[in-house]
Write a protein that binds this DNA or RNA. Structure first.
Lengths: 223, 223
DNA sequence: ACCTGAACACCGTTCAAGT
DNA sequence: ACCTGAACACCGTTCAAGT
């Protein structure tokens, strides 16, 4: 039957900072960065846009909180049995996959340097670098290079994904690019043409890991 | 004396795509990403916002064109006398410094994967990788790792810079962060505390290069 | 203490009208 | 062909007024 009261049904649960942030993450994941507006968020939370401002200072803080929320759930758990190399690879893949699932995270994480989520990643990498018996004077550089690579490249990859149409077939797309590379000017793009074939069986995740391994080799080869 | 005509003085030179783009780059450099609006751009070009749309499809295309313009001027010139390692380092530093001067470039470059500006960087790196006598099957991965590192980490660095207040003293800032690191929980942040001291004499540019060298070592150590 | 929603000062973009 | 600028449909944010 029809509702018994005149007033439209409104929110039952109280509006909390937590609920706002998780709704923001959902909006970012489903409708993207341009879809996260205070009006859309308010509608989803069955309230007015002004109410959100009582719990969150503004859009910048909202995005920072959403980013922290995602990173925090990513960085939990640490396999202490693994070799340092394996542990670093696992951590790197964790970040990579998190950026894959939430392509907006990279953008905003970069705007919070030295903040707690990045610091936790840094600490974890650093411990593994120590376990690799890297001399103390070289530890900072080694850990920095790894973290910068991880955040930077995973962020690049996420940005690439965002530009692709959601429906595009991966293989088809790579084939098209590879073909385009083959048709480049042989003088200007000699190298690119040579490796065009390798692009067809290209795997972003594997390529990402291969880069990690190159840095790890570089770190250990120094000793 | 006063002007002889009634109509206010307007633009003399014709409005061209080129003038629009270079004005956009100027606005981005001086007032930042939020300062680039069609209204501000129109005022600077002494016209109305609608006029810009006759030459440029929209804001997305405008940003892409501005990005390409900056990258194109960065990538010119190539020292053929240098060793492969030196050439790659020089190229990397060129990108790093360009991102430093135009901190917005990284953001938008990442949104144009496989497009001409990035392809030119890739080609240059690839040629040096070949010069390093990397086996053909490993060339794609080596060049990708280097390019991803360069774009990713330089982009991270630029994003970091953007978050800093323009007036902040570099040394003071690093000192403050280092001190904060020293006060972290010893259990949770054992490694970070250990390297806090090294942060004081930290140099982003040098650290960036050190990462390049680690990858280069990794690439050549494989052979 | 917490919420509401109209109102303000902006945006990007369009388009009829001008030259 | 190219430009003008008012108008449209949005934003983030504020704030007087409510409970």
């Amino acid at each position: 039957m029809a509702s018994r009261t005149r007033r439209p049904e409104r929110r039952q649960e109280p509006l909390t900072r937590e609920r706002i942030i998780s709704a923001a993450v959902e909006l970012l994941d489903t409708v993207g960065e341009s879809g996260l507006t205070f009006r859309a968020l308010a509608e989803r939370l069955a309230t007015g846009p002004g109410a959100i401002y009582w719990h969150v200072a503004g859009k910048t803080e909202l995005l920072a909180a959403a980013t922290d929320a995602v990173v925090t759930t990513t960085i939990t758990g640490d396999d202490t049995d693994a070799t340092p190399q394996e542990a670093i690879r696992a951590l790197a893949l964790g970040v990579f996959d998190a950026f894959d699932a939430h392509p907006w995270v990279g953008t905003y994480l970069a705007r919070r340097p030295g903040q707690s989520p990045m610091l936790r990643v840094f600490e974890r990498i650093g411990r593994r670098v120590q376990a690799l018996r890297v001399p103390e004077a070289a530890q900072f550089t080694a850990a920095s290079a790894l973290m910068n690579y991880i955040l930077g490249v995973a962020g690049q990859n996420a940005a690439n994904l965002r530009t692709l149409q959601p429906g595009t077939d991966r293989t088809e797309f790579l084939d098209a690019v590879a073909t385009a590379w083959t048709e480049l000017d042989p003088d200007q793009y000699a190298f690119t043409r040579t490796v065009a074939g390798q692009l067809r069986k290209h795997d972003d995740r594997a390529e990402f890991l291969a880069g990690i391994d190159l840095i790890l080799t570089g770190i250990t080869a120094r000793q």
